[in-house]
Design a protein around this nucleic acid. Structure first.
Lengths: 104, 104
DNA sequence: TGAAAATATCAGTTTATGCTGACGTCAGTC
DNA sequence: GACTGACGTCAGCATAAACTGATATTTTCA
């Protein structure tokens, strides 16, 4: 059974800046200041995007004094990768067998 | 080296209706009429979304008389799945080793 | 305690984009 | 050759969402 891809998660990850953040967090656990440096975005803007990522469960926070560390949740990304892999596999079979519905 | 996820492709796939179309096309090659039936969306709306998917290289068309068959390109989805799998793998290592940049 | 730094929140503006209705085009059928 | 059905295009509208500036909150350090 082909489980569908989470639309909300896709929406969250579709923004260029958020995708950049996710890519950066995949390599290192960073705090907002680092992300401001790396992306060049305004702190306010970044904070908004981080909130979106947090609420979507993509990242987790860990307070450290007056800093806040952000870490990416690997399982969320892995799950998404799995969904797309399934989808690609299904599409592969469809293409190979040329499964088409007849015109009405 | 971690190749980044294609933002444009993500934007295209982030729409609920387009994701629905992609999921349907993964199983069967369909024409617009079928997609109208399956999704319940207006033909015009669907045509607009199909154009977006076409221009992004996600789907291909095959004319058949006055009908137009749409097929999903498995390689595009497979590639995306691969990128996310890499990202997840990197994030997994980062989490396991607790790789964090020190506060400035 | 007062100042500064790190981060979050809020309100307002602007931009992007999805949806719709009207219309155009091309292929098949009577 | 006129008609119908499948599909695409275009212009306009409406909503969502990204960006910004101002401000609040919390923590650290002198």
């Amino acid at each position: 059974m082909l489980t569908s891809v989470d639309t909300e998660l896709m929406r969250v990850l579709a923004d260029p800046l958020r995708l950049k953040i996710v890519t950066l967090l995949a390599r290192e656990i960073l705090c907002t200041t680092h992300l401001v440096e790396e992306t060049g975005a305004k702190q306010t803007n970044l904070s908004n995007h981080l909130k979106v990522l947090r609420e979507a469960g993509v990242v987790e926070t860990e307070p450290c004094g007056r800093f806040t560390y952000y870490r990416l949740r690997p399982d969320v990304i892995a799950s998404l990768a799995g969904r797309f892999a399934e989808l690609a596999e299904t599409a592969q079979v469809t293409a190979a067998t040329d499964t088409k519905r007849t015109c009405p």
